[in-house]
Write a protein that binds this DNA or RNA. Structure first.
Length: 500
RNA sequence: CGGGGCGUAGCUCAGCUUGGCUAGAGCGUUGCGUUCGGGACGCAAAGGCCGGAGGUUCGACUCCUCUCGCCCCGACCA
């Protein structure tokens, strides 16, 4: 009997997602704090894996970490008009300091002269300091990154995908020329793509956002878009060309080599804990979480099998010895030697938590000098049972390393195949409507007349939005045509989908 | 923030319509024993401010009002 259940995807995708997050031990609702989440140890460990890899990539591309305040004076936030307008409704505002007790009740005490906004993002407070720190072309480029929490007062929340508070990194850079800033925007989007492909085993499409979807205060927003198992798109990362908008708003200038003063050209780029949700929705199945090895806090779990106490002592000793060897290879290894659960219970538990490889070690294996390995997702044999692999205890690390590499590649290939099977080119409105009917969604490449009005009309009719104008080569060949909705001339197809 | 649903043991829920014994079940947990290669079983035990606050009543898990939180659908957004 299953103690805990996971609703099948086919039955209720939203419920399935919640079940996987809960049973995987990733996070839960903060309950007493509306719209916020508690990231539990296993979920936080996945985020730490992401952080470690991304941080290395940021350093390799010349960036340094820094930290700016959580609170932004309202007057500072308001300096860039479009920016404050875009975030106005989502801002939490601090208006008081201190508490006082009266009649047995606690209330706030001193009203602040100027309210603080809890950062929804940090362009403005960083703009304030860029002005102070940048004076000469010799100070440029300034390449910073911040790991931080931000708060956006969301009305409807989902664990990892949309919460009131979330964790992220935000890169902020300043450059002497627009061309250099544009290179930075493209470079960091490539970093995100590589990370998604190599570490998350998640294929993504790079592209440019429409004006409607652009970051508030940017002149151009680029993104990586991933396809989830229900056919909806998830924006997995963004990179913004801020032009001179913030440079002008905060009067960030530098003296160029000719001695003239110019406003800097800035960029910002970020990914968030939302990526944990992306991994869940991209790879997991009805048995629970599936983690790509490069994000798995535990790569291998040993389940010793025994009947007698003597056998228990022997197999556990052997399991711990092998585990130690694997840990020396840099792997996360757990030996589940609990004696209050039977092996089958352990199998299910670690599968729900997404451990890529399970190794069973019993008396028969011990005698033969082998172990039984079972991948988190394994092919079925003729009897419908998952295939287990017999591995020699000799050089186990080599075999395990190979299996984990294969599994990492398998997940990417599977996700890519899924995306290809769920990507279509559509040239008629009837076909377009049919794709998005009901809960339906796919990646749809279709022509669009380039106007915001048409974009909105399509959204109202189908709930599908333009995810991006894909990079050349990441969609169908660029060719002119007629808008799917209005029939007006279109320079190229764009990528539509319902989205998270 | 509008519409709908739901808050009772760690988890999933019953009880509420029609107010009344001592608030229940399964799973899980703890202890002992038998088990152990895909979700075992026996015996014993612990575990509840019935989400919170007011109200109606002799009496409230049950009825009324308010409030907090979660889920779903909208509108808004990463």
């Amino acid at each position: 009997m299953a103690g805990a259940r996971i609703t099948p995807r086919a039955q209720d995708y939203a419920q399935w997602y919640q079940d996987v997050v809960r049973e995987g031990g990733l996070a839960e609702a903060a309950e007493v704090v509306r719209g916020c989440m508690v990231i539990k140890p296993h979920g936080y460990a996945v985020w730490e894996k992401m952080q470690a890899d991304l941080d290395r990539r940021f350093k390799e591309t010349g960036h340094q970490n820094a930290y700016f305040p959580l609170l932004i004076p309202l007057s500072v936030l308001a300096k860039e008009a479009q920016h404050v307008e875009g975030f106005a409704m989502e801002c939490a505002v601090v208006t008081h300091s201190g508490l006082k007790a009266h009649d047995g009740k606690i209330s706030v005490k001193n009203e602040l002269e100027e309210p603080y906004v809890v950062r929804p993002t940090s362009e403005t407070i960083i703009g304030h300091f860029f002005k102070k720190w940048i004076d000469s072309y010799r100070d440029l480029p300034m390449l910073l990154n911040q790991w931080a929490n931000v708060m956006r007062w969301e009305l409807r929340t989902r664990l990892f995908l949309r919460t009131g508070e979330f964790l992220w990194q935000e890169g902020h850079t300043a450059h002497a020329t627009h061309a250099e800033a544009q290179e930075e925007v493209a470079r960091m989007l490539d970093v995100y793509r590589d990370f998604a492909h190599e570490v998350m085993a998640l294929p993504v499409i790079q592209g440019v956002k429409t004006e409607n979807e652009r970051f508030a205060g940017a002149v151009e927003t680029r993104c990586i878009e991933a396809l989830m198992q229900d056919g909806k798109a998830l924006q997995a990362g963004t990179s913004h060309d801020l032009g001179q908008n913030f440079g002008k708003a905060f009067d960030v200038t530098f003296q160029n080599q000719q001695g003239a003063r110019e406003h800097v050209w800035q960029t910002s780029w970020g990914v968030s804990t939302r990526l944990v949700g992306a991994v869940v929705m991209a790879h997991s199945d009805d048995d629970g979480l599936v983690l790509p090895p490069r994000l798995a806090p535990i790569h291998v779990v040993f389940v010793p099998i025994w009947k007698s106490d003597a056998e228990k002592a022997q197999v556990c000793e052997a399991a711990h010895k092998l585990a130690k060897e694997l840990r020396e290879d840099g792997l996360g290894v757990k030996v589940d030697d609990r004696d209050n659960l039977r092996p089958g219970d352990k199998y299910y538990e670690w599968e729900r938590k997404g451990v890529p490889l399970r190794i069973e070690l019993g008396p028969r294996d011990l005698a033969a000098g082998t172990v039984m390995a079972k991948r988190r997702i394994a092919p079925l044999d003729a009897n419908g049972k998952a295939v287990k692999e017999t591995l020699s205890m000799q050089d186990l690390g080599v075999a395990v390393g190979r299996i984990l590499d294969e599994f990492q590649r398998f997940l990417y290939e599977r996700a890519l195949a899924f995306r290809e099977a769920n990507t279509v080119v559509v040239d008629t409105w009837d076909e377009f409507v049919a794709v998005f009917k009901g809960e339906g969604s796919k990646f749809v490449h279709a022509h669009w007349d380039g106007t915001g009005a048409t974009e909105k009309a399509i959204k109202e009719a189908t709930k599908a939005t333009i995810r991006c104008l894909p990079y050349d080569g990441q969609g169908p060949a660029l060719e002119p045509g007629r808008c799917i909705k209005t029939g007006a001339p279109s320079a190229r197809r764009v990528l539509f989908a319902k989205n998270y």
